[in-house]
Design a protein around this nucleic acid. Sequence first.
DNA 1: CGTTACGTTGACTCCCGTCAAGATCCGTGG
DNA 2: CCACGGATCTTGACGGGAGTCAACGTAACG
Lengths: 248, 248
Amino acid sequence: MTLAQTSTDFTSCSDCNIRYRAVCATCDTDELRRLEDIKYYRTFDAGQPIMFEGDDMNFVASVVSGAARLSRTLPDGRLQMLGLLLPSDFIGRPGRDTVTYDVEAIQKVTLCCFRRKPFEDLVATTPHIGQRLLAMSLDELDVAREWMMLLGRKTAREKITCLLSLIGRRTASLHLQPIADGLSFEMPMSREAMGDYLGLTIETVSRQMTALRKDGVIELEGSRIITIPDLAVLMAETGDDADGGMLA
Amino acid sequence: MTLAQTSTDFTSCSDCNIRYRAVCATCDTDELRRLEDIKYYRTFDAGQPIMFEGDDMNFVASVVSGAARLSRTLPDGRLQMLGLLLPSDFIGRPGRDTVTYDVEAIQKVTLCCFRRKPFEDLVATTPHIGQRLLAMSLDELDVAREWMMLLGRKTAREKITCLLSLIGRRTASLHLQPIADGLSFEMPMSREAMGDYLGLTIETVSRQMTALRKDGVIELEGSRIITIPDLAVLMAETGDDADGGMLA
DNA sequence: CGTTACGTTGACTCCCGTCAAGATCCGTGG
DNA sequence: CCACGGATCTTGACGGGAGTCAACGTAACG
């Protein structure tokens, strides 16, 4: 068992798979060179903590590959997942020096890290990074509020179908597959992680998955491989407008 | 009944009560002058819609006084409040041209408005505005995630006590009163609005308020005036760390 | 007054959490 | 190859917390 590693590998920013989606997306060559000067890579295995709530925030980072999650835990142990971090997502907050959520790898994850102070200097002096960070923060805010609607007002079945639709569509677009009936994908998270994300217990998640299977809304191969025979049927179960989810 | 009004009054930015908290907080005199050139005031009465989801976003604005709310409604009518907008909070999103939530006045509210396009030009050319907007967006993101924890994992009683603690502390600090036992304040929202914010029905809100009164956690004078005889008792009911809520 | 919005309370239902027992999968080692 | 143990997932029984439906107070306002 190894702890987090600081990689000796070095990928040029121009060859990076998140070059045009991450915080550096709109940087010109000069700005990119300045970022490149201060970046370093770290990897974490699935299940490893990346930051703890209350820690000093020594670095900020972009997710290059894999997946991580943000969560917070109440004193009595109740846990709520607050965000899912996928390639190109940004971890950390310039201008704040302690971490406000737990961050944990849920798959093997590689981060492109920047020590916080030099990065903050860059934000202050290179307008493109600040602008990009603003746009990304506003996107995250939309996602968080969408999730508030789900957590506050949706039923267990609606929560599950929303998550399946989300993961299915994102996985398809990541692999450049069409979003159409018969869509099949692997769920990247355990039943427990699904519950943590949706504000449900593991038993309720499992029961709803079984119910959806029996109702023909989904097909299961093992517990992780999911096929959607009819997307419209799935979308009709999410509680959202039928067309709202079909776009994009 | 009047609709929203474009005020003929004009308050100089240097005299504005949100001068050092709003999006203009860190502007220098030149930047402030450019903002002043394009601003105009509008007021809305309690209950009036300010923007509808799906509308063109013609303007962005700062709340100068009063209160508004962000909400979204599912096709079948279920509603979730997604944000509470108080003086100095910002409405709208540069870079997006349609509104993504309903915005409604919950008290008589005055907005300092900027047409979107000129404002976006300012964001692109005056670094202080963009930086301030970033900091404010990140604060909002923290608030939204705090609320996700509440909506996903807290009981009705915990949700209510969290809200009472939030409103009580903010009202006290607004009026420069000490946050101490015996704190008394007026609830600025109806039972229905509380339910919309907390993901509860109006009946559950009402029952929990009665239970808290019977248990001596709060005292009620009418339905809106609330006194907290012992803050520590209230905080112990929120589900958070006892100290977490006492700071700030 | 009557009207209307707002708030409280009661009776009942049901969804989801809790507790518990199995089932299934998988890697390890004899 | 099979046995074992642990993690993950499923299923059942049961209870409670919050939603629903309905009636009744209460306050504000014409």
